[in-house]
Design a protein around this nucleic acid. Structure first.
Lengths: 137, 137
DNA sequence: ATCCACTTGCAAATGATTTGCATTTAGAAT
DNA sequence: ATTCTAAATGCAAATCATTTGCAAGTGGAT
């Protein structure tokens, strides 16, 4: 793991190793708060600051060691609920293009039906992120 | 539009009508802030409070008149970036089940390629939301 | 062992969203 | 039309996740 840090030119620090090790142990995605809580549990690392956790998470995300589940924008977006569809969102200017696709809906229906842990799927969200023609240099 | 409010037992107020009308005019999803900005533009409705906008948006969401794009949880989630996959998330207990599906990836590739506005798709997020077996009453 | 850019801790700032409370209002009952 | 009450609103303060400025600490190249 620490090789990945070095390769990317980041220093190997106790905080970074501790946080990486937490993700290695966890089977589930974690929030910054989850990480802090786990850190406190480990006797040795009671002292890693919340701000450091946030800074480390975004560093690890940029290094593509961690993935952030859903690129959430600062604010929530709303639209009329009329028709079900999905979006392609520009990472730079927030332009939105809608799309819908029957195949995907069908496949998702099957996935929902075959889930081992879930019995009731209420909705789903699907967004593509990229650069629109104007923002693509 | 106001019939929908009445049908659901909500009072028809100037604020609600103004906000609904903004969504009717808009081709794009809007944030609470966007709505406030539009309200200020209209001479008549300079006076609708920000808190009212937020309260109205969540009311309209509950009435299923508006849809919130991506059910964002309070905090962002992170996980090791190793393998690309998606999630089924319990709305009650946050339990997560992973899944992946080649068909969906393939279809999304085609959608990206055929987009009229976008030229560079970097990533996508796909999450299903529902109730896990334990939380389903 | 030294040095400096990179890290960290701490506290304060930020930005979106929510909430308590006093006032106003929609709309049902009169 | 007037009255009445629960629901809706404005305002300001609170909250919550996340970010940032700055001073102090530390990896790791030399």
């Amino acid at each position: 793991m620490q090789e990945i840090l070095k390769e990317n030119g980041y220093k190997v620090t106790p905080a970074r190793l501790a946080i990486l090790s937490i993700f290695n142990k966890s089977k589930l995605p974690l929030t910054a708060e989850d990480v802090c809580r786990e850190l406190v549990k480990e006797k040795k690392n009671k002292d890693i600051n919340e701000a450091t956790v946030y800074r480390t998470l975004s560093l690890l995300e940029q290094a593509e060691i961690l993935r952030k589940i859903d690129f959430r924008k600062e604010s929530a977006f709303f639209e009329l609920a009329e028709k079900h569809h999905h979006h392609i969102i520009c990472l730079k200017c927030d332009t939105v293009e809608d799309f819908e696709n029957k195949t995907i809906e069908k496949v998702l229906g099957g996935i929902a039906r075959n889930s081992s842990k879930f019995i009731n799927i209420k909705d789903h969200s699907l967004e593509l992120f990229g650069l629109c023609k104007s923002c693509y240099q």
